[in-house]
C-alpha cells in the first residue's frame, strides 16, 4: 500500500519513510538535471538567490520531451542520478529534502542524506508517458535557454515513486539485488 506524501517535504514526512516504501507524491516539485544543477550550485557559491525555495524541496531529475498542443508536458521519466552527485550535497545543506531519479548514488550523497535528513526516490525509468499523466501543471521558472534542461515547477498528483535511500542508511538497491543474486 503506497504512502501518500506531500511536497515540499517536512522533516516528519522524511523520518517516516523507509527504503522500499512505495509513495505517491502530490504537491510542488522542481525539475533539474546536469546543467541546471551546475547553475544552481554556482549561484549558491556566488551568494545569489535561487529561482525556487530549497527548504523541504524535492528535485526531479528529468528533461521532459516537449508538450504537444493540449498536453501539460511531454514524456517525463527520470534520468540517471549519479551525474548530479557532485552537486547534491551542497543542495541538501541548503534545505533540499528529496531527490527523484534512477540508479545508485555515491557515498558522499548517501552520507549527506543521513546528515541532513533527506530521501532519494526512484521513479520508473522509461515509463515516461505513464508518469506524465500525474503531472498536472508545468512551467519553466529558470534557465529557459537550457531547453529540456531548464528548471520547471511541476504540480503533481499521486506521482508514483519508491524510496531507495532513507535517512537511516537503508538502501533498496543493495538489499533488493542481494536477495536475488545467485552467484
Amino acid at each position: 500500500m503506497a504512502k501518500k506524501i506531500t511536497a515540499p517535504l517536512t522533516a516528519e514526512t522524511v523520518k517516516d519513510l523507509r527504503a522500499g516504501d512505495s509513495v505517491l507524491i502530490s504537491g510542488t516539485i522542481y525539475t533539474g538535471r546536469d546543467l541546471a544543477h551546475k547553475r544552481l550550485t554556482d549561484a549558491l557559491k556566488a551568494g545569489e538567490k535561487l529561482p525556487f525555495d530549497l527548504a523541504g524541496a524535492v528535485i526531479y531529475y528529468v528533461g521532459p520531451s516537449p508538450a504537444k498542443p493540449g498536453q501539460v508536458i511531454g514524456s517525463a521519466g527520470p534520468t540517471t542520478s549519479y551525474r548530479m552527485d557532485a552537486y547534491s550535497p551542497m543542495l541538501m545543506e541548503k534545505g533540499l529534502r528529496g531527490m527523484i531519479g534512477k540508479g545508485n548514488r555515491t557515498q558522499p550523497v548517501l552520507d549527506a542524506m543521513k546528515q541532513r535528513g533527506a530521501v532519494y526516490f526512484a521513479a520508473v525509468g522509461g515509463a515516461a508517458a505513464l508518469i506524465a499523466r500525474t503531472i498536472k501543471a508545468a512551467k519553466v521558472i529558470a534557465y529557459d535557454d537550457l531547453g529540456p534542461e531548464a528548471v520547471r515547477e511541476l504540480k503533481v498528483e499521486d506521482f508514483p515513486a519508491i524510496v531507495i535511500n532513507d535517512t537511516y542508511g537503508g538502501d533498496l538497491y543493495v538489499a533488493g539485488v542481494a536477495k536475488y543474486k545467485k552467484d
Partner: peptide, 26 residues
C-alpha cells in the same frame, strides 16, 4: 516489485502507442 515494473512498462508502451508520444523522454 519486478513484476510491477514490467507491468508499468507494458502500460507505458500502450499509452505511447495510442497517444503517439515518446516511450521515454530521452
Amino acid at each position: 516489485a519486478g513484476k510491477d515494473i514490467l507491468n508499468q512498462l507494458l502500460e507505458n508502451e500502450q499509452i505511447a502507442r495510442k497517444e503517439m508520444m515518446p516511450i521515454c523522454q530521452d
